[in-house]
């Protein structure tokens, strides 16, 4: 593994490489959404793809989230492999009818006759001072819906590799890209490609506490884990990667080892994916626990604009460290 040739790039570059590879590999793949072509994508994830693949395959759409998402469903039913890009998760609510009532239900309503091989990508989360209509983390909501799969790539490897696996999936897959991660720099193997979806990943090992997270909070959890390690607290850090189906084996195995679980989730606490994970730990690992499961989530307010207020609303490294310390030392 150590012999792999690496190169530097950003999360945005990784997403773009994934798109480019998919468009190169499969003629049926096309990208559509608001400003994906001439503008290059609102987060520049599809920059220059129009020039390379042409307007038939890189399609700028009107501001009609419901209809271009529904058109993605129809095109998928008609034999194509569309990638629909929705600018942000808040705008995806305009397409929720199509996602929930059509994409997620077609296979079941038709008794197995019609599957919908559609991929929908969108930006999610706060941290960019974009206030209450551009900053929420609603992927946990989507994870409530049977019939779709929900992915959240937090690493360059996943940003690069989840798309192709999602396109190979016969059913609708939603990919949530934390907006705050697009400029994140890192290293990726030169030959990086598709990655497995549906499985969580243990990114750091420790015996004292399980930090369970995904998306942008994963990086805060890793940072907290490094600080805690200096104090002698060793943590498992789990990247969930997929919120539906939830890879419960991964965190249950971790809790069986550490006996303490702290979930870090950018969604609001009430009815969140963190609540679901907590419930599953209670249901299946209650007698393994040495302390109550705890959660760090976003404050239950619409996201404020002012920097200090937004920071106060979002999970932060310091609160992860403090909570972990208290959970281990009492």
């Amino acid at each position: 593994m150590g012999q792999q040739e690496m190169r530097k790039l950003t999360y945005r570059d990784a997403v773009r490489e994934g798109l480019r590879e998919a468009l190169q590999k499969d003629e049926r793949v096309f990208l559509m959404g608001e400003d994906v072509g001439r503008y290059g994508g609102c987060f520049a994830a599809s920059k220059d793809l129009l020039e390379e693949f042409g307007p038939e395959r890189i399609r700028d759409t009107p501001l009609s989230e419901s209809t271009f998402t529904g058109a993605g469903i129809g095109a998928a039913l008609g034999g194509m492999r569309p990638i629909v890009e929705i600018m942000t998760v808040n705008f995806s609510l305009l397409a929720l009818d199509q996602i929930m009532n059509n994409a997620a239900t077609y296979l079941h309503m038709s008794g197995g006759l019609f599957n919908v091989p559609l991929v929908i990508r969108m930006a999610t989360g706060g941290g960019k001072q974009l206030a209450a209509q551009h900053s929420h983390s609603l992927e946990g909501w989507y994870a409530h819906i049977p019939g779709i799969k929900v992915l959240c790539p937090a690493t360059l490897e996943d940003a690069r590799g989840m798309l192709w696996s999602a396109l190979l999936d016969p059913d609708p897959v939603l990919i949530f890209e934390p907006a705050v991660l697009y400029p994140m720099e890192g290293e990726l193997a030169v030959d990086a490609g598709a990655v497995e979806i549906g499985k969580a990943k243990l990114l750091r090992e420790g015996k004292d506490l399980s930090l369970i997270s995904y998306g942008s909070c994963l990086h805060k959890s890793l940072e907290a884990a490094a600080i805690l390690a200096e104090e002698g607290i060793e943590t498992d850090v789990i990247d969930l990667r997929t919120l539906r189906p939830l890879d419960e084996k991964s965190f249950l195995a971790s809790v069986a080892k550490t006996h303490r679980a702290l979930i870090v989730d950018e969604g609001w606490r009430s009815g969140s994916i963190s609540a679901e994970i907590s419930a599953r730990i209670m249901e299946q690992a209650f007698y393994q626990l040495d302390a109550p499961v705890e959660r760090i989530c976003s404050a239950e307010v619409p996201m404020p604009y002012a920097k200090h207020m937004e920071e106060a609303a979002l999970p932060q490294v310091v609160s992860i460290v403090e909570t972990a310390r208290r959970m281990v030392h009492g």
Binding site: G70, A71, I73, G74, A75, L77, G78, G79, P82, N101
Partner: peptide, 12 residues
Amino acid sequence: GGLPVAVGLALA
């Protein structure tokens, strides 16, 4: 709800 799907089938 069926109109966007029809548009997509035609697009395919």
